[in-house]
Design a binder for these strands. Structure first.
Length: 801
RNA sequence: GCCGCUGUGGUGGAAUCGGCAGACACAAGGGACUUAAAAUCCCUCGGACUAAACAUCCGUACCGGUUCAAGUCCGGUCAGCGGCACCA
């Protein structure tokens, strides 16, 4: 009989679907295991060949855990708000909800065709009002606790998408999505105070099992640094506060710089002699996009503030103050003390403006460049700090600052609060009413969900105002507190909102009274294993950890962290080694692969393609090997004879294989797990005879990788129940090794012969056998034996001279 | 510039704690079966030397070190990938 994958796969998908084979049970006495993948954005292009890689990997984990007796939750849903859908809707005059529905339909049938063991009964959709009701509810809780606030601020504005972006969405000065220019614009925006959680987001990484590169990227992104704030008096009487990580270098501070947006500039406007020049500089700086600022980073620009100066509190000397855009308003205090001797940027600036450069740590050559990495040098030209090392000087300076009441230790972060407003249609409306008298008034819980209004078109306004502002019936309301005319907030939430808590909804997807019941949350949370892309490390992953911690603080969840384990998969490239793209013409369509080879082969190949964590090029040739393997597995049924135990020939190999496949799945080494099964298959083909018991073990091991074919063969050999309800095999560690093994014998570290020994043989016995080996005898004859080594079960080495 | 990662046959990749480098596949070459092709099965497959095999030597980006023994550990160099980037 021929392996008819098309028929087999259709048959089992229908059975699983009809019976809900993989639906998780509600909270119960069984041990639980929660496996999570990042739910897809249902784009118009349909499933990408890269999607099945993580989905299959986690499917393998889920299926294995089920076979091991766990109550497994492996859910799926749709992260469906967002710009591509909205843009498509605008171009084609179709409602985004309709576009979303059609895209989901296509994605769903594609995912179904892969035999993924999702619990479809818990399917969620972030654009469903019964879902975003709770996204809005969480926002209101944050508002209630003061974590959501509105602020006039310079925001990143994408000139093409006409939308405000979060810092995380700006890549090297351009829009993450469309790569257009991003400029700064002053706007009133909703913000979420993620910075209040900065320390916990770093420190709690110690309590979870994330791959190192995820941890280090998050730590890097949050960017915690320890330093000091120092107060510099000015000639205007106002104090100018700076942040520095090098308080020890204060004697070398020969000038100061404040950022163009600094508030003191306006306050000092009357006293500044060249105020016009400064206003002009500030205007030019604001016109610069982030891209230009970055590109021009080599050449420093700035203007000296004439008429106002500061005093270095350590030296007592009068020093000038400059305005320059190399100092950012968003970090520290927006002002610095410049130490050109020991900071390259200050050095470049000082050279350009002919400012004094003083060496305060010896050991460098400040004639040539700033001496930056000067941890080992001693302080000079620094009054009471002279002779100390850098660490001592830091401590002493901070003590001195505190004694004089002009500063102290300070921790700073690169992380900024999350810009949460979007001026677009296809997002969750922010459930706030703006009243002239009462301010920002939250909707009552009973008024949620606040549904999106119906609109004729979804174009944003020319000044970047939200399309919702045109829905006058919807916008104009009366204030819930005072009853006067008021307006709804017209901004919507960013795409990251719905995905910040979706894993909680899966625990109790249909709940109408709350985002999920306490019982189900306590049973299922935390997620045991979450796999996703590296590109979400500083966005989704950080955001959702923040929301989760907030929900933990208000008692919704019982664990401080949402995900116990986080891993990441590599991308699949085109067969030319380049990223797949339409323009390169190297795109592989999963539907076509399934049609030609079947889902089991696709699954197997994507797991066999290479190290799961690394990028791998697709090969239309290599996939044939996986198909060939499944053909051989199918034909194996012809070797099966009755037998309820292992045969003598294969017993050790089977025990080894059970051990290896199980461990490899746990360690994400799917490729070597498959290689091991291939080796066993080759051995079975050499024997051409297989006990039924052995075949069942083999099928169970292969089942997580290739679920359809194994289900079919399981039935073909007479089983009434499904293999999906079988038990994961166990191995006996004692039977994982042959009684006698061959080991290599080295002379001076080079293999010169091999001997067969009993596994448990004594060292002296093994060495004797090795010495009497003919080849070895000849090699060591007439030479002095200096040392002999035996590493049990591995190797013998004779050192001779 | 800073942080993280990776360099192994023609290709994708194996090698648990330092113990026989190249598992498992793909491609290629040869053979069997076939009228023929496809499919399938068998053999060869890092390099040098060799008609071939045995043997020997070389070989995990490069240079050096530790060790009886290094793809693996240490120091340095080069190349590539990812993230951040005027963060004081």
């Amino acid at each position: 009989m021929k392996y008819n994958f098309e028929k087999i796969e259709k048959k089992w998908q229908e059975i699983w679907n009809k019976e809900g084979t993989f639906n998780a049970k509600k909270n119960c006495a069984l041990p639980k295991y929660y496996v999570l993948i990042e739910f897809p954005y249902p784009s118009g292009e349909g499933l990408h060949i890269g999607h099945p890689r993580p989905y299959t990997a986690m499917d393998i984990v889920a299926r294995k855990k089920r076979l091991e007796g766990y109550n497994v939750l492996y859910p799926i849903g749709w992260d469906a708000f967002g710009l591509p859908t909205e843009n498509y809707a605008m171009q084609n005059k179709i409602h985004p909800a309709v576009v979303t529905r059609d895209n989901i339909k296509r994605f769903k049938s594609q995912l179904m065709s892969l035999g993924l063991s999702f619990d479809w009964s818990r399917e969620i959709n972030t654009t469903d009002p019964s879902y975003y009701k709770w996204t809005q509810w969480i926002f209101l809780k944050m508002f209630e606790k003061g974590l959501a606030y509105k602020k006039e601020m310079a925001v990143n504005y994408c000139t093409s998408c006409k939308v405000v972006l979060a810092n995380e969405e700006v890549i090297a000065g351009s829009c993450e999505r469309c790569h257009s220019e991003v400029v700064r614009k002053i706007k009133s925006q909703w913000m979420l105070a993620i910075t209040k959680y900065a320390d916990r987001l770093i420190d709690d990484l110690d309590t979870v099992d994330y791959i190192d590169r995820v941890k280090s990227q998050q730590i890097n992104w949050i960017g915690r640094s320890y330093g000091a704030e120092i107060v510099f008096p000015t000639s205007k009487g106002d104090n100018l506060v700076v942040y520095t990580t090098r308080p020890d270098t204060i004697f070398g501070a020969t000038y100061m710089v404040i950022s163009p947006e600094h508030e003191l500039l306006e306050k000092w406007s009357d006293s500044i002699e060249n105020y016009d020049e400064i206003v002009q500089y500030r205007y030019l700086a604001s016109k610069k996009s982030d891209l230009e600022r970055t590109e021009l980073s080599k050449e420093k620009t700035g203007v000296e503030i004439l008429g106002v100066s500061a005093v270095n509190p350590a030296t007592g000397k009068k020093i000038p103050i400059f305005v320059a855009d190399y100092v950012l308003m968003g970090y520290g205090t927006g002002a610095i003390m410049a130490v050109p001797g020991h900071d390259q940027r200050d050095y470049d600036f000082a050279k350009k403006f002919s400012l004094p450069i003083i060496e305060v740590v010896e050991g460098g050559d400040i004639e040539r460049e700033a001496y930056v990495d000067c941890d080992k040098g001693l302080m000079v030209n620094s009054g009471f700090l002279n002779g100390l090392n850098v660490e001592q000087a830091k401590t002493k300076t901070v003590e001195w600052l505190m004694e004089n009441g002009i500063g102290g230790n300070k921790v700073n972060y690169k992380l900024r609060d999350w810009v949460f407003s979007r001026q677009r249609f296809w997002g969750e409306p922010i459930p706030i009413i703006i009243c002239d008298k009462c301010g920002y008034v939250p909707l009552k819980d009973s008024d949620l969900p606040l549904m999106l209004p119906e609109l004729e078109d979804y174009e944003p306004g020319h000044e970047g105002e939200s399309p919702l502002s045109r829905a006058e019936d919807w916008v104009n309301v009366s204030c819930p507190i005072c009853g006067r005319a008021a307006k709804r907030e017209t901004d919507t939430m960013p795409q990251w909102a719905g995905s910040s808590w979706y894993y909680l909804r899966y625990c109790d997807a249909g709940n109408e009274n709350f985002l999920a019941s306490k019982e189900e949350l306590d049973y299922w949370m935390a997620v045991d294993w979450y796999n996703g892309g590296m590109e979400h490390t500083t966005l989704h992953l950080l955001y959702s950890r923040f929301w989760h911690k907030f929900l933990y603080d208000i008692g919704v969840t019982s664990q401080p962290e949402p995900y116990l384990k986080r891993t990441s998969h590599g991308m699949i490239l085109g067969d030319d080694g380049q990223k797949m793209s339409k323009s390169r013409g190297n795109v592989i369509n999963p539907d076509e692969v399934v049609k030609e080879y079947g889902a089991d082969t696709l699954r197997l190949y994507e797991m066999f393609i290479g190290d799961f964590e690394k990028t791998a090029p697709w090969s239309s040739e290599s996939i044939k090997g996986c198909k060939r393997f499944l053909d051989r597995v199918f034909d194996m049924v012809g070797f099966v004879v009755d037998g309820k135990d292992y045969s003598k020939d294969l017993e050790v190999l089977f025990h080894k294989t059970v051990k290896k496949v199980g461990e490899d799945i746990e360690n994400m080494k799917f490729n070597t797990a498959i290689a091991t099964l291939m080796t066993l298959t080759n051995e079975i083909y050499a024997n051409k005879r297989l006990n039924k018991f052995e075949f069942e073990i083999f099928l169970t091991l292969l089942n997580p990788f290739a679920p359809h074919i194994t289900e079919e063969l399981w039935q073909m050999i007479g089983n009434k129940s499904m293999i999906s309800a079988a038990e994961w095999p166990k191995y006996n560690p004692e039977k994982c090794q042959e009684d006698s093994i061959e080991i290599a014998v080295q002379v001076n570290g080079k293999v010169r012969g091999r001997i067969t020994i009993d596994v448990d043989a004594e060292e002296s016995e093994v060495l004797e056998t090795a010495r009497s080996n003919q080849q070895i005898c000849e090699m060591i004859k007439g030479k002095t034996l200096i040392k002999e080594l035996y590493v049990k079960g591995k190797i013998v080495n004779f050192v001779v001279k």
